[in-house]
Write a protein that binds this DNA or RNA. Sequence first.
DNA 1: AATGAATGAGCCTTCATTCAT
DNA 2: GATGAATGAAGGCTCATTCAT
Lengths: 208, 208, 208, 208
Amino acid sequence: MNDSPDVNTKSALLAAAIQVFADKGFDSATVRDICGRAKANVAAVNYHYGSKDGLYAAVLAEIFPTGEERHAQITPDLSPEERLREFIRGLASDIFERGSDTIAQRWAIFLREMAKPSGNLDYIVQHHVQPRADELRCILSEILGPNAPDTTLAYCSANIWALMLDHLLIQPILDRLTPDRPAADNGLDLFVDHVFRFSLGGLKAMKG
Amino acid sequence: MNDSPDVNTKSALLAAAIQVFADKGFDSATVRDICGRAKANVAAVNYHYGSKDGLYAAVLAEIFPTGEERHAQITPDLSPEERLREFIRGLASDIFERGSDTIAQRWAIFLREMAKPSGNLDYIVQHHVQPRADELRCILSEILGPNAPDTTLAYCSANIWALMLDHLLIQPILDRLTPDRPAADNGLDLFVDHVFRFSLGGLKAMKG
Amino acid sequence: MNDSPDVNTKSALLAAAIQVFADKGFDSATVRDICGRAKANVAAVNYHYGSKDGLYAAVLAEIFPTGEERHAQITPDLSPEERLREFIRGLASDIFERGSDTIAQRWAIFLREMAKPSGNLDYIVQHHVQPRADELRCILSEILGPNAPDTTLAYCSANIWALMLDHLLIQPILDRLTPDRPAADNGLDLFVDHVFRFSLGGLKAMKG
Amino acid sequence: MNDSPDVNTKSALLAAAIQVFADKGFDSATVRDICGRAKANVAAVNYHYGSKDGLYAAVLAEIFPTGEERHAQITPDLSPEERLREFIRGLASDIFERGSDTIAQRWAIFLREMAKPSGNLDYIVQHHVQPRADELRCILSEILGPNAPDTTLAYCSANIWALMLDHLLIQPILDRLTPDRPAADNGLDLFVDHVFRFSLGGLKAMKG
DNA sequence: AATGAATGAGCCTTCATTCAT
DNA sequence: GATGAATGAAGGCTCATTCAT
């Protein structure tokens, strides 16, 4: 894993930056903090990434990879409903699988980016969201049938995203509203199941 | 007490602060900017609100009023379904009614607060969210029937919130994903209708 | 004691100022603090005393009164040695009599004024120190005899002052050097006695 | 390591700080002033010393060195009286030797520290005063003999300090009381001689 | 006679960045 | 290739003071 005694300053910087940006947000994150955690010089960020913005862009590129590698795995011979379930499960495990810190940090950064989009949101949407959105739209299109108006399709697609993402967004509220609720990440299957049934119910209602 | 040319520095400060906090976020907002827009001295914020934090707290208090004034208006003789529709309509008009800038700014601030909760989120949840959440839960409880498990109730409640709020959260994404989609705020009734049908479908699916 | 419900703002201000100036020094004292303790408006100092400097001058005038009222009490029919003892005793009780806070505060202010003389030191010296210095010089002159050179007289005078005052100046050092030493103010007589004997010994040595 | 045109910002900063702190006192000294005199950037103080406090601590450490280097020079084969004279002479030249500004500034800072002790007084006393105080006490102990009570020893020790230091403290007063007196620093030997004789006289009086 | 509001200068500190080595 | 030193702009905040009432 080690290229040199100090691990490789550039990637240590990146790793530290992910932590700090996720934790503090872009504005409140400081170059000094990042360099400190990476055990690097204050000037290291500018040296390796040109600027704080450059580092942030690099972080996004690292954390939201181009995403070509996924999705193909959903076998097309399943029924659309089954594929919806798989889609939901995949997204859910992305969101709640706290095993890897990287995932948690990705969503923290994502959320912030949503709350105040920087120029980099384009990048994220294009490379990370778009492929999944296309996949979902394709599934819904099959479920709703060919006659479903575009508006309905768009709305429903957004709805499913909503059901998933809001668990992300809303968590701080739920923490305060019902502090003793069952943790979502304990019962991932339960959650996936629920969202799947609710979504399907909603979709059918739109169809009928 | 003062309608003089500069209207009242304290409230001018508050108004400016709402704008700036909504636009830049707490960290990136500067006292100087706020005072500049309020045509007040740099020291005015500290004089009137003690500190930047104090001003922020005042902004939240202004923008998320204690909320006692609402909710009673939903007549209890309506069917639960009708009441759900009314609830959705009310929330939707809160979110999308762009007539008053204040509402847009409130949600911008709300979103940021969600992405990085400060100590003030407690306040918002308690005074603003809690009453509405109670109301929704009450409605859902009637729709789902007395036998619905608590988990389901909690999930469904969160789901409805999600369907509403995510239009807020997701807008920057949709802007990039499908820039030419029909604007939600043009067809408020359409949106309300959709969410209502989708939700009801989902709820029924949970019940059956 | 009360001229009006709020005691008389002007003198309340003065009393508060003495406390604060003694405690913090002129530079670190703040008008707000003083007004706060006097339960007066922020503008009160400027209103009543023109400025912070004006208030400080008033404090000095209050704390170092013109001093005409004293000294006559030392009966001239005592021997010069006895009069020296009385002088020392008088000064010592001024310095160490902690019964009245005013005295302690006076010396605190005096010390600061010595460490960095402001224009007001002239005032203090003229009104407060001069009369005592004259008295001491007169006593010493008798003890040393008419042939003592002026230089010696000046030095000796300063020496006696030194023996007294340094207990003021040096206290913070002694506190750190020998924290468990016998407190000077417990044995005032002891202290006076010592200084008297030591001084007399010194004086005789200068004479012989 | 650097003799370049600007000599070394860090030490230039220190030199400037000594001047300014001595002249204005800690509270009234401004970082801007110090940096200005050192021809350094405003941020230089924080960079090199962490804070204004840090710089002040560095100044004290510079100006009151640990003091191990002295004292040994007084040859133990002299009589106690001779050693007392040497002690007085050494202290006097410290205090009045205006050849080096540093010494004058040291005492100015010392005086202020005495008038309002900061946490750093501990440092000064420990490193600078303690060794000299021990030395003096040792000398006095020999002069007063083994039977002298501790109190007397302590008092006498303080007395000698007083006779020396007060010329520092009292100078601003004397300037105003007898502006035309012979300057002490012109006749250093005279002053040393006087203090020595006066002290010895006092000590003998305590002994007899 | 007295005050609450407002002011502007100035404080220490922190920031991302650049420069010389 | 990488760094310690240095920079200047800007940050929030505090201060004594003034002004309109």
